[in-house]
């Protein structure tokens, strides 16, 4: 579960997308496709289902079967029992579920709070990069709260990614290969 920042979500998807995974965005009609492309998401392997309608659980179940990364937005109408069933299915199929709305029983919860932008002055400049304070929580070993500051967009120079994390006390939430995010 990733709340508070669509950019953070896209940055997470970008990494998997570059490694050849397919991604599907369900029920998130306002996602900025241009921003996704600039974050590094391969648009050839991105499918959008903006309005799944009343069949959202069936649609998500079908997508979990074939797509590696499924992003669930607010427009997908789900109840908690659907969520539990989808999680079980995702666990069986090895699919990663990412949600932008609250999800009961999520394994990993990333909550982003905007901490300001750089590059913008009073009447001059333009937005360049964003600082976010990201709090990681969740179940099991992820239950220990970790707070880190993330700078987006992640800029890679000469193939070496500059570390987007600062003052991090423990494991980076972004660089680890995520197995299952509720």
């Amino acid at each position: 579960m990733v709340t508070g920042s669509t950019s953070l979500l896209l940055a997470l998807v970008a990494r998997a997308s570059q490694e050849g995974s397919w991604a599907a965005v369900v029920g998130l009609p306002e996602v900025g496709v241009l921003a996704a492309q600039q974050a590094g998401v391969d648009l050839d392997r991105l499918a959008l289902v903006p309005c799944p309608g009343p069949d959202a659980p069936t649609v998500l179940a079908a997508l979990i079967d074939g797509v590696d990364l499924v992003i669930v937005g607010a427009a997908a109408a789900l109840v908690d029992s659907d969520r539990r069933r989808l999680m079980a299915r995702a666990r069986e199929r090895g699919t990663v579920l990412l949600s932008t709305v609250s999800w009961v029983g999520a394994h990993l919860v990333l909550t982003a709070v905007p901490a300001g932008w750089t590059g913008l002055g009073i009447g001059h400049g333009h937005l360049r990069s964003q600082r976010l304070t990201v709090t990681r929580g969740g179940r099991g070993s992820a239950g220990r709260l970790v707070r880190a500051e993330v700078v987006l967009p992640v800029r890679e120079r000469a193939g070496v990614p500059t570390d987007p994390l600062r003052q991090l006390p423990a494991g980076p939430p972004e660089a680890t290969p995520l197995r299952l995010v509720g």
Partner: peptide
């Protein structure tokens, strides 16, 4: 596999329900 899954979703919610974006 992804193609099959997307085709199945199209069968569920109609052809326009699944979109791909290009710049």
């Amino acid at each position: 596999r992804a193609h099959r899954a997307l085709l199945r979703v199209q069968g569920l919610i109609g052809g326009d329900g699944v979109q791909v974006a290009t710049l």
